[in-house]
Amino acid sequence: MSDLADSISVVIVTPAGTRDEYNVTHLRAPGVEGDFGVLPGHLPFMTILRVGAFYLDSDQGRQVWATSGGFVEVLGDRITILAETAEMSDRIDLDRAESARERALGRLSEGTADLDIARARLALARSLNRIKVAHEVQDG
């Protein structure tokens, strides 16, 4: 299999304008049907991301990103991640995530309309995910 490249480029695109490109040897991402991994030479693949973390492994080590959902396309030696939000672990604003968590918990305990509850739950999941990803890296 010498014709396969030993790395894939990952492009991360968000509506807020993050547009980062990395060369990785392995990607692990949170799909709606469970986490999945992509190695060089993967078949064309498309799926939806849920709230969670994705991992970019390269020679330089591992990067962890928090995402609040989106979409992944694997095509050839290129992976495109379209995420509504995506932050690298060391760029996460922990204070902000903490206050978002407090807010969401407060709203849940008040217990108003169904729609607000659903929204608060989502907000809670997003903030918890950010906090988790930030700590995961800090703690090694």
Partner: peptide, 20 residues
């Protein structure tokens, strides 16, 4: 006209993409 593997299926992916 690339044949992708869809997870869960094309319709499921579209269902998520339209709100996006």
């Amino acid at each position: 006209n690339i044949d992708y593997i869809y997870e869960p299926d094309p319709r499921g992916v579209l269902d998520k993409l339209l709100p996006m």
